[in-house]
């Protein structure tokens, strides 16, 4: 316990200074959220590369939470669906249902190239399409996988902080 305390004191703050608020258009509906964005992550058929980056976007270094974004356990609690990966045939209906379970106003963020336009999986037999083919998408974050900074930047467009 003492060693943990020493470690905490020695390490201090690891979060990097916040970069300036990204410009570019913000989805209109995000303004209603008023700086608080609860996120439900849906893996629609990802290779888990994006998940690793999302994990580090909410880790101590990038600290997505400081901008008012938070991952939650149920789509009922969420404002935003963070969808990764191509939408496979088996995940298309669950994704639709998850979208339906979110109370309005709700937004969808497609994370990674696969989610945007199927990436390398385009045309594969198990793929139902990109995220926008299944549910309406408001923000897209490119990259394969996107850097944590890019994810944080995309989320800041929603929180406005």
């Amino acid at each position: 316990m003492l060693s943990l305390w020493r470690k905490i004191r020695r390490t201090g703050r690891v979060a990097e200074p916040a970069p300036p608020l990204p410009d570019g258009e913000r989805p209109e509906r995000a303004a209603v959220l008023g700086g608080s964005v609860q996120i439900r992550h849906v893996d629609a058929g990802s290779c888990n590369g994006c998940e690793v980056e999302i994990g580090s976007a909410f880790g101590p270094v990038h600290d997505g939470e400081r901008y008012g974004a938070r991952l939650v356990a149920s789509p009922r609690h969420a404002d935003v669906l963070l969808v990764t990966g191509v939408v496979t045939r088996n995940m298309a209906e669950p994704l639709r249902r998850t979208f339906d379970a979110v109370p309005a106003p709700k937004l969808v963020v497609a994370v990674g190239d696969c989610a945007r336009d199927c990436g390398v999986f385009a045309g594969a037999y198990g793929v139902a399409g990109a995220v926008r083919d299944v549910v309406p998408v408001d923000v897209e974050i490119p990259g394969c996988p996107p850097r944590p900074e890019a994810i944080v930047e995309g989320l800041r467009k929603l929180t406005g902080r």
Binding site: P75, E93, P94, R97, A101
Partner: peptide, 11 residues
């Protein structure tokens, strides 16, 4: 109030 199906994890 919107009536929605129970959250069944999408299954």
């Amino acid at each position: 109030r919107r009536t929605a199906r129970l959250w069944d994890c999408g299954g």
